[in-house]
Simulated scan of single mutants.
Amino acid sequence: MIIGILKETADNRVAIVPKTLKKFNEKDIEFQIEKGAGVLASYPDKKYEKYAKVSDRLSVLKQADILVTINPIPEQELKLIKKGAMLVAIFSPFNNAALIEQMKELELQAASLDMIPRTTIAQTMDILSSMASIAGYRAVLLAAMESPGFFPMMITAAGSIKPCKVLVLGAGVAGLQAIATARRLGAIVEAFDVRAAAKEEVESLGAKFVEVPGAIDKRDAGGYAVEQTPEFIERQQQEVQKRAASSDVVITTAQILGKKAPILLTKETVDKMKPGTIVVDLAASSGGNCELSEMDKTVIRKGVKIIGNSNLASDMPKDASFFYSNNVANYLKLIIKEGNLHLDLNNEIIDNTILTKS
């Protein structure tokens, strides 16, 4: 069996790092990696040479039985892959129905790592949590760089500066990492989440939990938010507007699995925020938590800077690649038995992730 690792076309990360390849001792598995695939993530070709064959992209595409990437392979290259090959990546199937259909027509198998259930047994494969942790950390650093003021309290001979006020909307993995990072930088932090279970975690990190009564809370939602009633949404927006108006930084992370992200910051809320406020919207790729967010763009409205970026993990490619690599290696070990692809659909993890099967 040949497992191919391709260079990402629009990302600084690489799907598998050299250290992870040491974990595969099966004599029936050969790794091939595209030349330069890990360079942007600080993993040069020479680091791979002991464990994999470094080759050109076309050779990897044509020979691999399993192709591992982070983002989907460009559609025009799918025809180059041999029938029956398995593609392993983050396919975001709810938003890419046409791509999934094309892979079916070409008789390609596909496994979407973003569909791994967020359960205890699947923790070692949970790429969403791994990448969200990095994104939450990076979001605060980005906000600190863009902010016109300090994060910590500063007392100097020239005067005193109050600490930055940070509001985090959504206290999942990304939100909790954002809270922890903002607190380490000396900010005063408030956080909101519809899940009651998040309160203890938020407070354990030294932040204040903002409660809005009446939220629908499903414990089996896998860390995602769930759709709320119109009455709750109205109360929520009123509370968020009040908190956002006095904040210096707002980090938004709330997403609903398979649906558009909930709007937490309306235009009206942004208009009430102070000039110089920084908003980092980590849900921009699924529509954004801020009504004004645009994916991969920075929007400025009345002095408020809104940064739409759902791919901050790519800005820390070395460690993000390391995390992703370990997650994907654990998944590969689940679906490969004795050098052959073994898809046991009775296994919840495999059943959730397989999109197409030849």
Rank of each mutant, 00 (worst) to 15 (best):
I3C: 04
P18L: 02
K19F: 12
T20L: 05
K22N: 11
K23I: 12
K23N: 15
F24R: 00
E26Q: 12
I29E: 11
I33L: 13
E34P: 12
A37V: 08
A37L: 08
D45F: 03
K46D: 15
Y48R: 05
A52P: 00
V54Y: 09
S55F: 08
D65A: 04
T69D: 01
N71L: 09
E77G: 07
L78Y: 15
L87H: 06
V88D: 00
A89N: 05
F91M: 04
F91R: 01
A97I: 14
E101N: 09
Q102V: 06
A110H: 02
P117M: 06
P117T: 11
T120P: 03
Q123E: 12
T124H: 12
I134E: 01
A139V: 01
P148V: 08
I155C: 15
A158E: 14
C164S: 13
L167M: 12
A171K: 00
A178D: 09
A182W: 01
A187V: 03
F192N: 04
V212E: 06
K218W: 14
R219W: 14
D220E: 15
G222Y: 04
P230C: 06
E231I: 04
Q238R: 12
V250K: 00
A254G: 11
L257N: 06
K259D: 08
I263D: 00
L264Q: 04
E268W: 06
P275F: 03
P275L: 02
V279P: 01
G287Y: 06
L292Y: 01
E294P: 03
V299P: 00
I300G: 05
S310Q: 04
D315W: 07
N326P: 05
L343D: 04
L345G: 09
N346V: 10
N347K: 10
N352Y: 10
I354W: 03
S358D: 12
